[in-house]
């Protein structure tokens, strides 16, 4: 009797998960959490901040558009000039509000050669983009954001958005949403031109 009860009381040997497997699982979980945290941080960062030097990017223009006879432009080629980068799309109604003001501002500065406007067409189809440009008689250099690389770099939150880059290639102003008047644009650009 006592022998029997002793048998039942003896705990069965438990096989635990090997240590290497436990370490592997924890490393995997931590890795996933890190990736998740980086992704969340990136989405909550917002657009790139004023004061930051803007990295170089290349914009290929639509047929019929050029900058000094070139079909593409690199931001680094424009050092020494004030650069206005405007993100737009043909399906974006607020973009239509500011289209005429941007074009007027461009025509105002074009003869000086000190300011360059770049239109970056975001997630659009070319026929509609070209119709939009023709409708608003846009003449400043415009091209599609191929692979959405430029918009991803600027971390745009929508369209329209406009970025003002000074002569040293530093981002100085960010305009989210449409401009209310041509004067809004001119005030920002004039302030940047006034700097040495």
């Amino acid at each position: 009797m006592t022998e029997n009860s002793n048998e039942t009381l003896t705990p069965a040997p438990r096989r635990s998960v090997p240590l290497w497997a436990q370490i592997l699982v924890w490393i995997g979980l931590l890795g996933l959490l890190v990736i998740l945290a980086i992704g969340l941080l990136r989405t909550q960062q917002g657009t790139i901040q004023a004061g930051q030097v803007v990295d170089d990017f290349e914009l290929a223009f639509f047929d019929g558009y050029d900058y000094n006879g070139q079909e593409t432009v690199n931001l680094s080629d424009l050092r020494g000039k004030v650069v206005v980068v405007n993100f737009w799309a043909s399906w974006c109604k607020p973009c239509e509000q500011e289209a005429a003001d941007l074009e007027e501002a461009w025509r105002y500065y074009e003869p000086t050669g000190e300011v360059v406007f770049l239109g970056v067409d975001y997630v659009d189809t070319e026929p509609e983009a070209r119709s939009y440009l023709a409708k608003f008689e846009i003449t400043f250099p415009n091209g599609a954001d191929r692979g959405t690389k430029i918009s991803q770099y600027f971390r745009i939150e929508g369209v329209p958005e406009t970025y003002f880059i000074d002569r040293q290639g530093v981002l100085r102003e960010v305009q989210t949403g449409p401009f209310q008047s041509r004067q809004d644009i001119i005030e920002i650009v004039d302030a940047l031109l006034a700097e040495e």
């Binding site: 799309a89 043909s90 399906w91 997630v123 659009d124 189809t125 509609e128 959405t148």
Partner: peptide, 19 residues
């Protein structure tokens, strides 16, 4: 479409997706 994340293109009602 990147404009309307999490909505497949075949059912997305926006102008961008129609295009």
């Amino acid at each position: 479409c990147p404009v309307c994340e999490n909505t497949p293109l075949d059912v997305c009602p926006t102008q961008a997706c129609k295009q």
